[in-house]
């Protein structure tokens, strides 16, 4: 198995029963992706980007990832630690409370913006509804995605 995580090549043997989520958390120790249910129902606290597409990493086996390019929250800021515009907007709009779903919300927002699903508040609400936030910072999340979208797409 060979795949990239946040640009770094991982070349190793993996267990057939290990999800991408568990592998990310336990092997490279990338614990930003969280486990909310391990069955794709909590709304994706484990969301990461696989080849630019948002995925519930609890529903992907790491054995399926050969040749893939995986991005997690830890790989979003640039090498100097300058935050991505979506990360900045989440702070600026107060788009989180406990923070447990936040890395996943941000990854989902990055993909939504890239997919051009952020033209209005209503559209953002629909496309961000795959990520539950039970602290319920939804209006602030919507505002953050809209603000970041303007920055990213100009």
């Amino acid at each position: 198995m060979e795949f990239r995580v946040n640009g770094e090549i991982h070349s190793e043997q993996v267990s057939a029963r290990t999800s991408l989520l568990d592998w990310l958390r336990e092997h490279p120790g990338l614990t930003g992706a969280k486990k909310g249910c391990a069955e794709g129902a909590c709304g994706g606290a484990c969301t990461v980007l696989v080849d630019g597409v948002r995925m519930n990493s609890c529903l992907v086996l790491v054995a399926q990832c050969h040749g893939s390019n995986i991005t997690t929250i830890e790989g979003l800021a640039d090498v100097d630690g300058v935050l991505h515009p979506v990360q900045k907007a989440f702070i600026g709009e107060d788009a989180f409370q406990c923070g447990y779903c936040t890395p996943a919300q941000i990854m989902s927002a990055v993909a939504s913006i890239r997919e051009r699903h952020t033209s209005s508040a209503e559209e953002v609400q629909e496309w961000m509804s795959g990520n539950l936030c039970h602290c319920s910072a939804y209006p602030q999340i919507t505002a953050a995605v809209l603000a970041a979208s303007k920055k990213v797409t100009g």
């Binding site: 930003g32 997690t72 929250i73 702070i91």
Partner: peptide, 21 residues
């Protein structure tokens, strides 16, 4: 005032119990 723990939460650096090994 923006949350003091904000940067830790948006970068995945904030550690919750199960994040420890």
């Amino acid at each position: 005032l923006p949350r003091v723990e904000g940067p830790a939460k948006v970068t995945g650096a904030a550690k919750y119990s199960a994040d420890n090994e």
